[in-house]
Amino acid sequence: MDRRIRVLVAKPGLDGHDRGAKIVARALRDAGMEVIYTGLRQTPEQIAAAALQEDVDAVGLSILSGAHNTIVPRICELLRAQDQAEVTVIVGGIIPDEDIPALKRAGVAEVFQPGVSTQEIVDFLRRRISEQTFKS
């Protein structure tokens, strides 16, 4: 596989806690992926537009504010509407267990809760995206 995995790391909503997003962005880069970090306070529309423009394989959303149930499904919907249903969406942050099934139904591939190692995120993306490349 020649092409490096391309990931958009995004901070939707009004939350300014970017410690996690920046650590994940750097860890994915250190693992050889190409990472585009959107910076803070991006609307779902801005994130979807960036995903399209950057032609990414995955979108990583970091939310610690509790707004995930509103914001994440909308981003998944916008990705599908622009024919990017195959883009792997992962979410990290403060996400209670009981919210996970609905997020997965909305199109999220995996939710990474507090305490996860960056290696687990790297491994997940590699596995998932190589499977998709194989399928297509």
Binding site: L14, D15, S65, G66, A67, T70
Partner: peptide, 10 residues
């Protein structure tokens, strides 16, 4: 509009 989903949360 930017308050959507965030009102009263944090």
């Amino acid at each position: 509009p930017l308050a959507e989903g965030e009102v009263g949360k944090c």
